[in-house]
């Protein structure tokens, strides 16, 4: 298939998944704040830190108040990773491959975009928890519609690859939010407040119930293990890598455990690392450092995919 078309389907899915995960991000913070004791000051800056766009935010908005941060991450038309911007980009990508994807997919991404656009024009801000729930559901609906209406061909695999890489990256970042959120004092670690924060985090990854079935007790180590290494939970990093690898191998025709281009190799190596690492080793490295490492590898993978399949520049006659 055309490189540009594969690229558009890949990014269509990444942007929809990104929008969903930003909703999860903001949602985790809203939940945390609702449960926090009154004495604790609101912490919104950590959220911007996890996006890596703190300097840009400071320049544009100054103080990290709840309204500023939510506006920035949700409806800011000039911030390329806001929910609204992601959906606009998703829709543009969908529009450029309308003759390839199913019309149901187009309708869903169009409806999704219009829903967020409408919400952005309501003042004061709409009831946020229900808005974020709608964003998450619309994203699931898109994935479901794609699954059920588009042929599971090369284009579909590129789409799935995009969605899973984006999800792995964002699960790493959601987990990282906890690293940046400060407890009032160091001796709050392991208290009820700490536990509440971890529960809120799990819920934001839609992982609370599934975690309970598996681990029962709330423990930071087990939660990290669940969100990084679980092979069955669809938002865990390892699950995403396993499925992404399947799609990548469908595209390249490579058998498991082998590679024939840089993308195969980067993804295979990262997946194998998670296959054999233990959570204790991760904690020893430092959770934040390890999550950083995963994000860097995923960025690298994205670049490899671009160069292997999409790059329009490298051909010279």
């Amino acid at each position: 298939m055309l490189s540009r078309v594969a690229d558009s389907i890949y990014w269509l899915n990444r942007y929809v998944e990104r929008a969903e995960n930003i909703a999860r991000f903001v949602d985790v913070n809203l939940n945390l704040l609702l449960d926090a004791p009154v004495v604790m000051t609101q912490q919104w800056e950590p959220l911007i830190m996890t996006t890596g766009d703190l300097p840009l935010f400071r320049e544009r908005y100054g103080k990290a108040t709840a309204d500023n941060v939510i506006q920035f991450l949700t409806f800011d038309q000039n911030y390329s990773n806001s929910i609204l911007s992601c959906l606009r980009a998703a829709r543009e990508n969908a529009r450029s491959v309308r003759e390839i994807i199913s019309s149901e997919m187009w309708e869903q991404v169009n409806t999704f975009y219009l829903m967020v656009l409408d919400a952005s024009q309501v003042q004061p801000l709409p009831a946020l928890p229900s808005f974020f729930a709608e964003v998450k559901m619309a994203s699931h609906l898109f994935a479901g519609v794609m699954d059920a209406t588009m042929a599971h061909n090369e284009g579909w695999h590129f789409g799935r690859l995009g969605r899973l890489i984006e999800r792995a990256d964002k699960t790493a970042r959601i987990l990282d939010v906890k690293y940046f959120i400060l407890l009032p004092e160091v001796n709050y670690v392991g208290t009820a407040l700490d536990e509440l924060q971890w529960i809120a985090l799990l819920k934001s990854a839609s992982g609370y119930e599934m975690y309970r079935k598996r681990q029962r007790r709330i423990s930071p180590t087990d939660i990290a293990k669940f969100l990084i290494l679980d092979r069955e939970f669809p938002r865990s990093i390892q699950f995403c890598l396993l499925e992404a690898e399947q799609s990548l191998h469908q595209i390249t025709g490579c058998s498991p455990g082998t590679w024939n281009n840089a993308a195969d190799r980067t993804l295979g190596r990262l997946r194998a690392e998670l296959d054999f690492i233990t959570i204790e080793e991760i904690i020893q490295t430092g959770l934040h450092e390890f999550l950083d490492h995963i994000q860097i590898q995923l960025n690298y993978l994205g670049r490899n995919i671009f160069e292997t399949f999409f790059s329009l520049e490298k051909i010279h006659s």
Partner: peptide, 12 residues
Amino acid sequence: VVVDGYLQMRTT
């Protein structure tokens, strides 16, 4: 792109 005297399209 024109390569080797033919019009070609860039595919995956």
